[in-house]
């Protein structure tokens, strides 16, 4: 992700600061897949990922006055917002964000069935990802998503989240320790039949229930 070079970030930054909505539309097209992917990994839900994606770009647009005038790529910044937004979902801020509580109509899933189908063979990995995010405190999950999955450097993640680099490092270390303690051994993919609908949360709940019975 961050290794794909962005064309002339300084120009994009200036255009955004000036409120150029063409630049905003370009920003959206360039980064929407990366943002959506991270949002999906961190929320485990197709519909929440849509909301988080939309809210991420909106937050970026609203905060355009504060974009620095320099040459750094914009992707880490966007992914930092994504992590924040996704973790807000985790923190139960759904009511504050209002629209996040809504469900998509039945047509949505059908329309995007191609995307869902391409992900089915990935379902076991996805289930483990969702499990890890569920087990970790939001701050650690955010760092996991940014550094381990989205490939941000520690420095990029630190800036994106507004914390010192040492904090990123220590959160990752704590995440690793926690996951070593808590995760089940690999090899148990969990229920995956709901993936076609994007409702990974149900998968997680199934696993939780099973864990409790054990």
């Amino acid at each position: 992700m961050s290794n794909e070079s962005e064309a002339d970030p300084r120009r994009v930054r200036r255009a955004l600061r000036e409120g150029d909505d063409e630049a905003f539309a370009d920003l959206f097209r360039t980064h929407v897949d990366a943002v959506f992917t991270l949002a999906h990994r961190l929320t485990g839900s197709w519909s929440a990922a849509q909301d988080v994606t939309s809210e991420t770009f909106l937050a970026a647009w609203r905060g355009r006055d504060r974009i620095a005038d320099d040459d750094r790529p914009l992707r880490p910044w966007l992914l930092g917002i994504t992590a924040h937004q996704a973790m807000n979902v985790r923190r139960g801020a759904r009511r504050r964000l209002g629209f996040l509580a809504r469900r998509p109509g039945p047509g949505v899933v059908e329309d995007f069935a191609d995307e869902a189908a391409s992900r089915i063979d990935d379902a076991a990995t996805l289930a483990r990802t969702a499990e890890a995010v569920r087990l970790l405190p939001p701050r650690e999950a955010a760092v996991l998503g940014l550094c381990v999955w989205s490939g941000l450097s520690y420095a990029e993640a630190a800036e994106a989240l507004g914390v010192p680099v040492g904090t990123v490092r220590s959160r990752l270390a704590r995440a690793r320790a926690r996951l070593r303690e808590l995760t089940e051994p690999p090899g148990e993919p969990g229920a995956t039949s709901d993936h076609a609908t994007g409702e990974t949360r149900e998968t997680r709940e199934t696993r939780e229930t099973r864990g409790a019975r054990r």
């Binding site: 897949d33 995007f112 995307e115 990935d122 990995t125 483990r128 990802t129 999955w149 690793r176 996951l179």
Partner: peptide, 12 residues
Amino acid sequence: EQLPPPRPITLS
């Protein structure tokens, strides 16, 4: 190694 990322999503 422990948690390889799921494949990136490309939206239609």
